[in-house]
Design a protein around this nucleic acid. Sequence first.
DNA 1: CTGAAAGCGCTTACAG
DNA 2: CTGAAAGCGCTTACAG
Lengths: 344, 344
Amino acid sequence: MKKRRATMADVANHAGVSRTTVSFVLNNVPDANIPEATRQRILQSARELDYAPNVQALNLATGRTMMIALVVRQTSEQMAADLFLGEFMRGATRIIEADDYHLLVHAAEPDAVESTYGKLVRTHKVDGLLVASPMVEDPEVQLLHDEGTPIVLNGATDARDIASVDVDNVQGAYTAVRHLIELGHRRIGHISNAPFSYTSSVYRLAGYRQALHESGISYDEQLVFAGEFTTESGYVAMQHLIDNPVLPTAVFIGSDVVAIGALDALHHHGLSIPRDMSVVSFDDILLSKYVRPALTTVHLPAYDLGRNAGEMILKIIRRQPLVKMRVLLPTELIVRDSTARLSV
Amino acid sequence: MKKRRATMADVANHAGVSRTTVSFVLNNVPDANIPEATRQRILQSARELDYAPNVQALNLATGRTMMIALVVRQTSEQMAADLFLGEFMRGATRIIEADDYHLLVHAAEPDAVESTYGKLVRTHKVDGLLVASPMVEDPEVQLLHDEGTPIVLNGATDARDIASVDVDNVQGAYTAVRHLIELGHRRIGHISNAPFSYTSSVYRLAGYRQALHESGISYDEQLVFAGEFTTESGYVAMQHLIDNPVLPTAVFIGSDVVAIGALDALHHHGLSIPRDMSVVSFDDILLSKYVRPALTTVHLPAYDLGRNAGEMILKIIRRQPLVKMRVLLPTELIVRDSTARLSV
DNA sequence: CTGAAAGCGCTTACAG
DNA sequence: CTGAAAGCGCTTACAG
């Protein structure tokens, strides 16, 4: 019993005016001086007929789509980022839906040959793109941007002329390591969240080095190992750290997921946290609070990243000036149970 | 330097044919016998001009939108369900994008007065709705369905004539409790995932009772407490259980998140898991593997739920017959470290 | 085998 | 103050 929806023409007939007038009234066109009487009559007719505009037609006429795509690349390794996807989406939709835009989620195949998300733009499916966890090198993104497609990158990137939002990785890592130093630690290891081809890893390493440097602690490459997104990689990296001639008294780990694997390795070696080693990590995923010991970690504001990305893409679409091409959100250190004062 | 995209008219001009012919060729209309020569000429022109169809125009002409909305209700309590949102989405997009449909994610305000997602349908923004975590009573969903809107509900519901996908909660709970019984436990408590106004809680309780009954264990209301989605509620519920005159030797908890809080309560009371109490829960969220002890739990196949929901909504949109109105996916018990044989 | 034409439901100069 | 008309870029009977 799908009933035909009323169109603007139906409303016009019902109210005894032209479609033009209906359009003016319904869209509150500013310089169309419609007398209050007809105005009310039209609104009344629209209500009676349960009129809702057909956005497809509207879009065709205006050339907009009122749609923004969130492009997600899902390599199985990137499940870490995935933990924040829901939050990010919520932040983004909150913003754009307030302005009648909607979010289209597109799962881009990481290994696809053909242009996967370029098609969304070229077929006029969306007005702009939010690209989650962009690859370091992504010719397609650059190409689309050069063609004039509104794009906001989410996550670490060597942003050229493309707008992006990210957390301030350097500051976050710096704060984490400062915390360890203030607790008296001097021999501090580091396990990255990802290989150092990823900019997030590079920035977090930079924050680590900066904190060490500032306190006159020399950087020791022997204490630094690369994680690879997963818990398993954290386990392995911690094994290496433990194999060191002199065990560090603390470690900064680039992500909670990797840290959880590292904790496992420490437990297996009979080491107690934080007594034998303080651990501070990065992300503040939901489970970091429930791991034993609860992780001291750097909070990643995923919801706010989404909000900011949403605000930026709307501005770009509307050709409004952007205050900053690269928004870096501050982080916050959440102190829990995995760090403690160096026992002497 | 946003260049104007080529339209079908451009292709027609370039190839020296009419738009009709171009449309026929590009859409492979079956009974349009276009000679191979012109056919190739048209395809060549389209390639040269980098033609991509304007889906807005296509949609207006055909009356379809090739869009499916995923409606998410986000009360903060429902963060538990949220943990699966990403997986569910991935499953759903995998299916529908293969057929050129796209997923629109809409965050419905739980407290909104106005129709939030009905508008998506009425404005011709989407062809159908996937409703995540539907409320027990949702007049709007029923109304939309009665109007002929294709809808698939995700999650527990007293499905009337609306299609839905869910996990087999009764079977899952049954399997979990069977596991405890096989380990020798007879005094088994239960903490639900949510208040018993939620059908998922009711079904899981039913599975619990069924397993008890089958083994001739009488149901003891004193051992059953309601959780409320959160870890905190699990902590409280476990407190109550512990206050019991006779402590159960095992407990089935309706969700991992609630179980984590319960574990905390047990720890605080100096009880050791699984030595003093076996714990089996439900969901198999990512962190259940990393909690200490790692949780024995019932795996919820979120990705497959998404796939099934995607398949069903496509069939409904295309008016193809549905094999089942209510798809219940089987669960799997994942045995880890939180359950053990009853020590005598 | 292929084209002229109407139509999908809107917007928006342009007249009056 | 309001309407007739063209246009957005497609599809699809209907002719020839």
